[in-house]
């Protein structure tokens, strides 16, 4: 075998030229994929803003649809006033139910469960998270709506089932970020486990808990299948302030109804409603990020 010529010029030799081409192609591919994802999001936001912005006005945001949606006429059908209220109520009630359960599950998993028990519970959470929302909706439809009629509260229940695993997961992650040394220090002061959890671990992980909740709320606000099955037969022209007893009009439903009602003006309103929803989701996500960064800083300073 010929010995390597160490005194040759320091330009690529052997297969280095080929290896460098492969390197460049892979790096380019990865970069392109990342940029495509960003580009798709930007195009998506741009098109929604472009089409929806014209529909947005104070009256659009505060007025209800003027009459029951119909396929026939191209009449201006008012705005999304009651849908915003309905969505807010349904999601808020769902979150009120989901947050304590999700946080308790996370506490159980990180603070109290033995590894043998934590595994199956974690698996169950992952499976629950993976359940299609239409299946959750169908389950509650069969259980509650049949024989009783729809109610906004049933949609809240479905959304809370969607939120619980998400909240449990993000809360669990932020609880695990709380250093073991802090718990040790607290135990060494003669403070019981539960008091340590309530007084030290949860406050330390509070930012993470809020972040998880905000993300879960953002996700739930756009869920369509549950509200379609459980809270869709509302009178779209009236506003109701209670989730109990009757279905509530809501944003995903308005988007659906405006877009199938036909006519250019209704279609613009569908885009307008979509813009309202997407704005809420984006703002919630940015808020969650800011909170998350803040809580990390608090922990590490």
């Amino acid at each position: 075998m010929a010995t390597f010529d160490y005194s040759g010029p320091l330009t690529p030799s052997g297969n280095l030229r080929r290896r460098r081409v492969v390197d460049r192609v892979m790096r380019g591919g990865a970069t392109a994929a990342a940029f495509i994802a960003v580009a798709i999001l930007l195009i998506f936001i741009y098109s929604i803003v472009q089409r929806g912005a014209s529909a947005i006005s104070l009256s659009f945001l505060t007025h209800n649809p003027l009459e029951t949606f119909s396929l026939s006429a191209n009449v201006p059908l008012g705005g999304v006033g009651n849908a915003i209220i309905g969505s807010a109520l349904i999601v808020a009630v769902g979150a009120v139910m989901a947050v304590p359960i999700g946080v308790l599950i996370a506490l159980f998993l990180t603070e109290f469960a033995t590894p043998r028990l934590a595994g199956p519970v974690r698996l169950a959470l992952d499976l629950l998270y993976g359940l299609p929302s239409i299946v959750i909706a169908l389950f509650l439809y069969g259980l509650l709506v049949v024989g009783h009629g729809q109610a906004g509260f049933y949609a809240s229940l479905a959304l809370s089932m969607i939120m619980v695993p998400l909240i449990a997961r993000t809360t669990g992650e932020s609880l695990q970020l709380v250093p073991k040394e802090l718990r040790d220090a607290s135990h060494a002061l003669g403070i019981s486990r539960w008091r340590t959890t309530v007084g030290l671990t949860i406050p330390s992980a509070f930012g993470g808990i809020v972040t998880g909740t905000v993300l879960a709320v953002a996700r739930a606000a756009g869920e369509t299948a549950p509200v379609l099955l459980l809270s869709s037969l509302a009178d779209p022209t009236t506003t109701s302030a209670s989730v109990f007893g009757q279905p509530l009009n809501n944003l995903p439903l308005d988007i659906y109804n405006f877009s199938v009602a036909g006519g250019a003006s209704n279609f613009a309103k569908a885009w307008g409603a979509a813009l309202v929803l997407v704005t809420f989701v984006l703002v919630a996500n940015f808020a969650a990020r800011a909170l998350h960064a803040r809580s990390r800083r608090m922990m590490s300073r």
Partner: peptide, 14 residues
């Protein structure tokens, strides 16, 4: 509560 402990790495609460 009667027998306290100080650890290797300082671990003040946040």
């Amino acid at each position: 509560r009667r027998i306290g402990m100080v650890f290797q790495r300082p671990n003040p609460f946040p």
